[in-house]
């Protein structure tokens, strides 16, 4: 693996000087720039450069963890030789607290790697967890933000996020076929599901770097093949090839009334106001497994309800427990 070396804590790590050389900077230059912001804390390079990726136009993302910082601050933008340097501050306890959330949760222990149940990460938490996983200290003596056990937890939590996306997209692709939607729509959804499978394989292999655009590079350096998925049979075969269990997409997903939606009444008429503040007169409020909801509404109407933010399509932990019960390890 060019540019990579095993470290004591994170499964993958990259040397700080190599990472910054991508944008033509040295650790010393960056350390001098951020020194006024660091105080008694520690500065870490995070993001694509820390993940061994990036190009000459990449930003330099710095996270400062500091005992005296009580809550997240930033980003503060500085520039060095024309290169944007984003600096954010976090309480020193923040990385461990995020990883702690996955302590004691059940795991789906697949042959390809672990998927954690019981802890759902929001968008910003996912991003932070991934960044801290691959963080590299500007000072080579800085300790890693995660030890080996914390890294394993974070990796399993991020794998859960991707597994959910993979299952959700597979379900929508399958429903789109049932509904007779355009071939381009079905193919797009299958390809997106295949993309999530590739992302999952990267994460299970120890590369959790965020940033969609880097996926082909990440797969390539891990030696993962990445052919486009064009249907359920191929997705199933690819899952098995990746040492992951095959599944029926329609059995994993459920629908429920969309977050941020509510029923309202106006002049005696009932409406649903969705999270986009749109009034919908003919909305559905079903809460059921997708297979059951499809029998009730039909595949086309069900998908339409997801697209109009009447219903959310979700992959619940309880369902994963039932379907993949034999892989569960209670920790």
């Amino acid at each position: 693996m060019q540019g990579f070396e095993k470290s004591g804590a994170a499964p993958w790590s990259v040397r700080i000087d190599e990472a910054l050389r991508t944008v033509g900077l040295s650790p010393r230059e960056v350390a001098e720039l951020v020194a006024p912001e660091v105080g008694d804390g520690q500065a870490y390079l995070v993001g694509s450069l820390a993940g061994g990726l990036g190009n000459r136009s990449s930003d330099v993302d710095i996270h400062v963890v500091d005992e005296t910082v009580k809550q997240h601050r930033g980003p503060k933008l500085k520039r060095l030789d024309g290169i944007p340097v984003d600096i954010e501050h976090f309480p020193a306890s923040a990385p461990a607290e995020l990883a702690q959330g996955a302590g004691g949760v059940p795991l789906l222990r697949f042959a390809a790697g672990d998927v954690a149940l019981g802890q759902r990460l929001g968008r910003s938490e996912q991003r932070r967890a991934a960044r801290w996983f691959h963080a590299t200290g500007l000072d080579p003596a800085a300790p890693p933000l995660y030890d080996a056990a914390q890294s394993a937890r974070v990796q399993a939590m991020l794998a859960r996020v991707t597994f959910g996306r993979l299952a959700g997209l597979s379900c929508m692709a399958s429903l789109a076929e049932q509904a007779g939607l355009l071939e381009g729509t079905c193919l797009h959804l299958w390809r997106q599901a295949g993309r999530q499978l590739l992302e999952l394989r990267c994460r299970l292999a120890g590369d959790v770097t965020t940033g969609d655009k880097w996926l082909p590079v990440r797969a390539r350096r891990l030696g993962l093949s990445a052919t486009p998925v064009n249907g359920e049979a191929q997705l199933h075969a690819d899952l098995v090839k990746a040492a992951l269990p095959g599944f029926d997409p329609l059995t994993l997903a459920a629908v429920r009334p969309a977050r941020g939606s509510a029923t309202v009444s106006l002049s005696g008429r009932s409406w649903l106001v969705n999270r986009h503040d749109r009034l919908l007169s003919d909305a559905v409020r079903t809460e059921a497994p997708v297979a059951e909801a499809t029998r009730e509404l039909g595949a086309a109407r069900l998908l339409d309800a997801v697209g109009r933010a009447e219903l959310d399509l979700v992959i619940e932990d309880d369902t994963l427990r039932k379907v993949f019960g034999s892989w569960i390890t209670e920790k």
Binding site: R165, G168, L169, M172, A176, L181, T185, H188, L189, Q192, A258, R259, G260, N274, R275, H276, D277, R278, L303, V306, G307, A309, D312, L313, V314
Partner: peptide, 18 residues
């Protein structure tokens, strides 16, 4: 078009596909 509010991953994926 005024469609703000939280971005839901599956909703947006469906919109992109259709």
């Amino acid at each position: 078009r005024g469609l703000d509010g939280p971005l839901d991953d599956m909703e947006f994926q469906y919109v992109l596909a259709t």
